[in-house]
């Protein structure tokens, strides 16, 4: 079983930059353009890794280590997630707390790096990132608690059932419960998809391609980075996108044998990438003051599902 998991993990590490390529290609096709190559992010990463790094004299070691910390935290969080239905070998009771706070640690490192540049512009981006992620965190925990509730129900309420582990939460109970008439569980993928857009700075919460300074959030924070450190940030962002898409796909897919499971997992992941591209093509960016409403909506959906799943 560990072999299956490591295969999925290797695919995640290898294919994560392709996820961004699919999003950009779908956006380009919808806009009637050919668009960048699907492998553009791979080319960018190799180019950046070969280049030197320009660093402001006002920065300290915090600025230098933050991208590495961010990438390491995302990698560790990804290693806790069951990929393609295969349970993580690192799973334990309550590992979802660690996964959420590892993502928080990566974000914290990037915020510190942004503040370290002493640029008010990057400070503004860091402030916005901290604000929106603080709002998104309760919504993410509500989603996890709902899934834990379902996993506990599926285990028959046994006291020693590992229902608080990510591997148990995403073991295919949700689609089975959904198909048996518990329609409220369909809201969790919707909430997680909204969180995917917010946490990964995609439209409608943020625009990853914006150059309009006053509306930037995540991009404002990484303006001073260059060379290999920028490559680490871009790869970390691609992995984080893969992680959130993996969470959403993990709820949608039932438990399947190896080959169908692998194929369905990859198809679901790239279908989600296409969906993100479609959303970005048809929606305008929300005004900053309206972003909390999107996150609140995701939280409300998760809370409603938690209430209803607890009652049933």
């Amino acid at each position: 079983m560990n072999g299956v998991y490591f295969l999925h993990l290797a695919l995640a590490l290898l294919l994560a930059p392709l996820f961004t390529g699919v999003i950009n290609r779908v956006k380009a096709k919808v806009a009637g353009r050919h668009g960048k190559p699907l492998l553009q992010l791979y080319f960018d990463l190799f180019k950046l890794l070969r280049r030197g790094e320009a660093r402001s004299t006002s920065t300290t070691w915090v600025f230098a280590v933050a991208p590495g910390v961010g990438l390491a935290a995302t990698l560790c969080a990804l290693a806790l997630l069951p990929l393609g239905g295969a349970a993580s070998p690192l799973r334990f009771q309550g590992d979802f707390f660690l996964a959420a706070y590892l993502l928080g640690l990566g974000r914290f490192a990037m915020i510190l790096a942004a503040l370290d540049t002493a640029s008010p512009f990057e400070g503004m981006g860091a402030s916005r990132e901290a604000c929106f992620s603080a709002l998104a965190e309760p919504a993410l925990f509500l989603c996890f608690l709902t899934l834990a509730n379902i996993a506990a129900g599926a285990a028959g309420g046994a006291a020693d059932a590992p229902s608080l582990s990510l591997s148990s939460m995403f073991a295919g109970q949700a689609p089975a419960a959904w198909l048996s008439g518990r329609a409220e569980l369909a809201l969790i993928p919707v909430a997680l998809f909204a969180l995917l857009l917010v946490e990964n700075c995609r439209i409608p919460a943020d625009d990853p391609t914006t150059h309009l300074e006053l509306t930037m959030i995540h991009e404002a924070m990484i303006l001073d980075h260059s060379g290999p450190n920028l490559a680490l940030i871009l790869y970390g962002a691609a992995l984080k996108l893969w992680l959130f898409a993996g969470l959403t796909a993990g709820i949608l897919l039932p438990e399947l044998p190896f080959w169908p499971g692998l194929i369905c997992h990859l198809v679901a992941m790239f279908a989600l990438a296409a969906l993100v591209g479609l959303v970005e093509s048809v929606m305008a960016r929300l005004r900053l003051i309206r972003v909390p409403r999107l996150i609140g909506g995701a939280g409300a959906l998760a809370a409603l599902t938690l209430i209803l799943s607890h009652v049933r």
Binding site: G181, A183, E184
Partner: peptide
């Protein structure tokens, strides 16, 4: 019965 439950859920939403 499941259709009734689905409708009630949609009403709540």
């Amino acid at each position: 019965m499941s259709i009734l439950l689905l409708l009630l859920f949609l009403l709540l939403l």
